[in-house]
């Protein structure tokens, strides 16, 4: 999993080199601006902007497609319902079901926004290592408890995941087949075991932490240095966001 996430995070494109804090703020503001769009005429704009940014990011298309595969299933569910349920103007009939115009437009709106926002999110977190993203958030003011919890949870996530796989393999080797509901209590014990092990490990980890000074006033050197170009890019994105929102307000 980790490999997947940080796989293209070490490339050398301008988006990769963009100061993480500026990137975080700029992209999130743009994402929210896109989420505000309702007018149909702006839909192709946001789609094109997201697509262009993705190309500029140097991330491969295969990466985007693999990340969009599962969420697209959700969209399918919506696609099946909205055109038939929403609106009055009937476009055409499929048997007893009437495909309505408003429903189709709603679907279009949701689909475009969904894909644009997800693409921007993938750019944001795909062009820097996850660890850097969390540190950038800390640099932007995330409370130390949340930052610490995120970092430690991230550190042990994969290990605990591996433990789970090992336990599942061990169960399978002893004949457990996860096919019927009768295995329910075994799964509950599995979950319980994961919790207990993590709990016990956290005790030892805590001891290791205090031995190396956790709880002392710690110094954090300024981890990020924003260059002028980073701030310029941030302002660019903020302006773009403002333009989108204003246009939306004027059109609608």
């Amino acid at each position: 999993m980790q490999l997947q996430l940080d796989r293209y995070a070490y490339l050398e494109t301008p988006l990769h080199r963009w100061d993480p804090r500026c990137k975080l703020v700029g992209m999130m503001v743009l994402i929210f601006a896109f989420s505000y769009v309702r007018d149909l005429r702006l839909l192709p704009v946001i789609l094109v902007v997201s697509g262009a940014m993705y190309v500029y990011s140097g991330l491969p298309l295969s990466f985007l497609l693999s990340r969009l595969r599962l969420p697209a299933l959700f969209l399918l569910a919506v696609a099946v319902i909205l055109p038939f349920a929403s609106g009055q103007t009937v476009l055409f009939q499929i048997g007893p079901l009437a495909v309505k115009e408003e429903g189709c437009l709603d679907l279009l709106r949701i689909a475009v926004k969904f894909f644009s926002i997800l693409t921007l999110g993938i750019i944001l977190f795909g062009t820097m290592p996850f660890l850097t993203a969390v540190k950038a958030m800390r640099g932007l003011g995330l409370p130390y408890i949340l930052a610490d919890m995120t970092l430690f949870a991230y550190r042990y996530l994969f290990e605990i995941g591996d433990d789970l796989k090992a336990m599942q393999t061990a169960m399978r080797l002893r004949g457990f087949r996860n096919k019927k509901l009768s295995g329910f209590s075994t799964l509950a014990s599995l979950a319980g075991t994961i919790l207990v092990r993590s709990f016990e490990q956290s005790d030892r980890v805590f001891k290791a932490m205090i031995l190396r000074g956790y709880g002392q006033p710690a110094s954090f050197k300024d981890e990020f240095q924003a260059r002028t170009i980073d701030v310029v890019a941030l302002l660019l994105l903020l302006s773009a966001a403002a333009v989108v929102v204003t246009t939306e307000l004027l059109l609608y």
């Binding site: 660890l131 970092l151 550190r155 042990y156 490990q201």
Partner: peptide
């Protein structure tokens, strides 16, 4: 593993 608790 109890002692390496940071992500890098």
């Amino acid at each position: 593993n109890d002692q390496l608790f940071c992500p890098s």
